[in-house]
Amino acid sequence: MVLHKLKRMLSKLGAGCINKIWRLGAGGRLFWLTLISSGESFRRFRLTIREVYFTGVLSLIIILVSAFFVGMVLALQGYHTLQKYGSSEAIGVLVALALVRELGPVVTALLFAGRAGTAITAEIGLMKATEQLSAMEMMAVSPIARVIAPRFWAGVIAMPVLATLFSMVGILGGYLVAVPLIGVDAGAFWSQMQANVDWEYDILNGVFKSVVFGVACTMIALFEGYDAPPTAEGVSRATTRTVVTSSLAVLGLDFILTSFMIAV
């Protein structure tokens, strides 16, 4: 009886693994199809602009408010630790580097997955459930070119913009706490920052990270929607999976990218 149960568990695990690999392959295929049918997203750039509005502009508020608070908390926490070593002027460096290199791209991507990613999944899933994608197919219009690709490129455009804004607003939040509130010298705050934050190594690498996260988050959201079972329950599950998968993908990719960037 125990053996039987064990066997069933093992076979369930195996089936789960195979399913994951299958989905990975299907996602990769959708990614490829999206890339090769992207022409229309640029020829009729209006389609993409429309989606930038929905994914980027509508995510602006949550990104900016979060950035402000993250920056303030970083400054508070950083000051608390740095002053023990008598180097509280280094607070500017700490806030800026933490935001530009890590928190900007990563937190933006996580918030993006929650705000825009779920919206994309639900929208595509519902379009599928209500046969809108089928209808498009029957009108000889490829849903990948007309629906998936513009959303993909919109996500890839919106993410770095959001991440850059996140970093900038976060630094302003850190400045507000460090300089007027705690009383760190403003000159030291900025000059230490400028001396230690490198344009290419820190800022551009951060932007590059956010572009990669943009590709990953948007593609995951699109795939989950496109692959969702065409029922209310299927779409709601797909939405949850979007958040889980995107978050894990972002954190995993972050580790890989960071290790490459530090090694170089």
Binding site: L126, E131, A135, E137, M138, A140
Partner: peptide, 21 residues
Amino acid sequence: GIYRLRRKMGMLFQHGALFTD
């Protein structure tokens, strides 16, 4: 070829399948 054939067809789906946006 399939897309060329489909241009000759019109299809009414069960619940209309209008584009909600």
